[in-house]
Design a protein around this nucleic acid. Sequence first.
DNA 1: CATGAATGAGGGTTCATTCAT
DNA 2: CATGAATGAACCCTCATTCAT
Lengths: 181, 181, 181, 181
Amino acid sequence: MFRRKGYDKTTLKDIGALAHIQAPAIYYYFSSKEQLLEEVLNIGIAGIHDAVRGAVDGMAASSTHRERVEAAIRAHLTSLLQHSDYTAANIINYNLAPRAIRERHRVRREQYADYWRAMLQAAQAAGEIGPGVDLTLLRLFLLSALFWTHEWYRKDHDPIEDMAAKLSTMLFDGIGGTALE
Amino acid sequence: MFRRKGYDKTTLKDIGALAHIQAPAIYYYFSSKEQLLEEVLNIGIAGIHDAVRGAVDGMAASSTHRERVEAAIRAHLTSLLQHSDYTAANIINYNLAPRAIRERHRVRREQYADYWRAMLQAAQAAGEIGPGVDLTLLRLFLLSALFWTHEWYRKDHDPIEDMAAKLSTMLFDGIGGTALE
Amino acid sequence: MFRRKGYDKTTLKDIGALAHIQAPAIYYYFSSKEQLLEEVLNIGIAGIHDAVRGAVDGMAASSTHRERVEAAIRAHLTSLLQHSDYTAANIINYNLAPRAIRERHRVRREQYADYWRAMLQAAQAAGEIGPGVDLTLLRLFLLSALFWTHEWYRKDHDPIEDMAAKLSTMLFDGIGGTALE
Amino acid sequence: MFRRKGYDKTTLKDIGALAHIQAPAIYYYFSSKEQLLEEVLNIGIAGIHDAVRGAVDGMAASSTHRERVEAAIRAHLTSLLQHSDYTAANIINYNLAPRAIRERHRVRREQYADYWRAMLQAAQAAGEIGPGVDLTLLRLFLLSALFWTHEWYRKDHDPIEDMAAKLSTMLFDGIGGTALE
DNA sequence: CATGAATGAGGGTTCATTCAT
DNA sequence: CATGAATGAACCCTCATTCAT
């Protein structure tokens, strides 16, 4: 509901209807609409973080860093686009959430960012990402591209695995043609 | 106001205060809050579209396509991050806008997308973007990365020109190191 | 609880917490919040009535009526200020109680008033209260003064016995000085 | 309304109906129900304070202090019982008002108490109140008796002027008969 | 004897909007 | 061109109460 209509437009009545209970019954489980939002945000971030970590950490020790990054991209997209309304709800509502919630939640967002930071640093240390690459900017742009997919992705697009593979290729090998060489 | 607090949380009283008038006076200029939103969305898209078009079209005829794309990136970021609260308001509120507005507005968003599509096609036709690159996916990911910057960009970041240059380099040349070659 | 927060602001949850049970468990002992209030009111009136009667009826047969009135004052104040939250709760909530409860309860209040009425009449009959004194008014003002103490009395005030003695003296002997005599 | 039903039981709908407007229109004039209560409390205290001060200060300079006190009693009762629902509302609701309101309001109550304190002190200094009388206790009991009248006074009682005169007489001359002298 | 779960009524409050002035 | 006053719809939330367990 938060994903489709946004926090403000979502009424407790809407939510209650979805859960087949009356609106006030929600207060038996949550202390306020805001707390409900906070839990949704948390589930959203946890879902994608776990998916990515699970995918990467489960890889063979012999995997290259490039393979790891590509796996992370694939897991991120799969989780966001196929599994979790919570993650999309997070993206949509985070900015408009009350300051208190946002501040408490920021920590979790940063933990996810940290995971990527470490992964990219390892790749650069191993020489699989060029030494001149600004990792902070890379991470920010890359995660932006990934998160924003929920805005334009439709079920009838390419399979997510293809998208992930293509993005990884563009990113590592560049899109430049041979015209100028 | 729409940018900072979102459409729903913004009250006409807020807006009136900003304009030094009483809330009902807004109705002298706009027929409803929704119409106000629509105009804000329009200004937002027009601002960035004009900025990008202006930058690219003003270039020397001898410019390479890569130079053009980089100029477009630079103009997009400059407009979004430095000039226009309207564009950021657009990004934040588009999804949650009433369906009618969204459908009327989508046309303008597509026109901006078309501009990029044409630019990228020209670059590929000229061989400056590899023939195997999926232009649709490239455009979607690239614009996602660009639009989402407003979420994390702070005034104390790198100068926008540097960001644009680095992104362009990563994109065209790839981030891959030499480890595997 | 009724004394501190008043009937309306007191929730069954509050009461349950005080009794270390859940709110619905209250219904095992009382049929409704109103019935609970009624019992509290009753206990409050009974407490002060019993205290006063006990003190006066236990006095030596040789006591003067003035001594009896003073004892009644002392007992009333002691009961109200030191022993019984119930009595204070009664005073605070009686007016705001539902009409049905109020009407049922009024009888008990009148019984207490009757006790005073009889005591004052006896004193007047015996000549210890002047023949010209309007007993009804005296009783009303006196009980008003006594009941209202719970509003301003703090533990660090004079001992209650002193207060009672002083009030009795003022009342019987008057506060007038000698200036005009 | 606050006087009849108490703050909690009074709904904004009730108040709106009384004022022939819809409940939300109240917010055009008051920022909250609490602020409304606060203003009612203030008017209540101001009403009685002004009435008493006006009556006493308007007396001939040659008046005795006893005459002044009696005039104050009369004015207090007249204001409370005949003119002002606000004062009765004050008495009833003060205790149950939110702490913040109560603390802000206490100052005004104390100013009224101060007025009486000064009046009684002057009377004692002039010898019209006995030197042994505890003025604080006298004031507290006297004001208690006066305030509480609104609980039992009915229109069919004695005229207020008679009541005031009788109370004054009892107070200054005492109720004691001659039996013990 | 007590609780977990839920409900229904209703309360205070917000807000876009209207309209006479 | 703008405001003061008011409205009606709707929202979040509270709470006494019920009832199966």
